[in-house]
Design a protein around this nucleic acid. Structure first.
Lengths: 140, 140
DNA sequence: TTACTTGCAAAATATTTGCAAATAA
DNA sequence: TTATTTGCAAATATTTTGCAAGTAA
């Protein structure tokens, strides 16, 4: 993703286009899969402080250009959510390999069941399994 | 859930039936919805230490009698997973009210898409929305 | 100019670990 | 009797916050 694009994106949401934020989004745009905060922070540490990575990721999640993902491995993951379709993930419980999963919209079914809820804005769906590479290792 | 039942359950998995573990499962069995570790620890603190709540919940999750749930609010939730069907949840982003959601099996669809994965053992699906009570408050 | 943003350091939370003492079987 | 389990305290890890100084617009 180009710097100019990122600057415009930030400004369109009323954010100032600072180096830290630009580098953060640029870095995320180069990650093909969700990355842990730990890793992200390392990648951008020369340009933005860890505390501000947290601040920025929270703000970006709020406006929806970034998505927070939880894989139950006690780390928090994020991915850029710009023009990609809403999708889910599968993570190998052995090696943590991540792959995208696309599927039908689930909100309607969930909402139709509920008397108490008036709207669903969001959902997270993660699958956990064993990838073929790890399955082989387990046999041998 | 009765103490005797819980004792047998624990022993059937090779665990010793200690007071702490029994009270922990008994307490979970009284919670209609997933509860945060924080709350759980408070409820059982007279009988089992926080460190051991973590140890026990992890062990119980591993054998599958307890389920770990993440609602993205930086707390970890658990629920007993004994005879209940696999199901999902919806949480109100305003008041944190939780409700169950039942739906079709999703594993098959996910697995059919993937060349790299050989099996799916588990998944988590959480919806986020606004409940009617909170929706009313937001209007007024 | 000025409101927003940052880095840093400190605080608050959350989770894990080591180990001697206690205890279930 | 003995292997498991516990509580406690300390170590780690994770996330949040306050604030003076820096910076985008």
């Amino acid at each position: 993703m180009k710097r100019k694009e990122i600057e415009n994106l930030l400004r369109s949401y009323g954010f100032r286009a600072t180096v830290g934020r630009i580098v953060l989004i640029e870095t995320l745009s180069k990650c093909p899969k969700p990355e842990s905060i730990e890793k992200i922070t390392k990648l951008v540490s020369r340009f933005i402080d860890a505390a501000n990575v947290y601040r920025a990721l929270e703000a970006f999640t709020l406006i929806g250009i970034v998505r927070k993902i939880d894989f139950r491995d006690s780390k928090t993951y994020y991915e850029l959510a710009l023009d990609r379709h809403h999708h889910h993930h599968i993570m190998c419980v052995k090696c943590n390999r991540i792959e995208d999963v696309h599927g039908p919209s689930l909100e309607k079914n969930a909402l139709s069941q509920s008397k108490a809820f008036s709207s669903i804005d969001n959902h997270s769906l993660e699958f956990f399994g064993v990838c073929r590479t790890c399955a082989k290792k387990m046999v041998s």
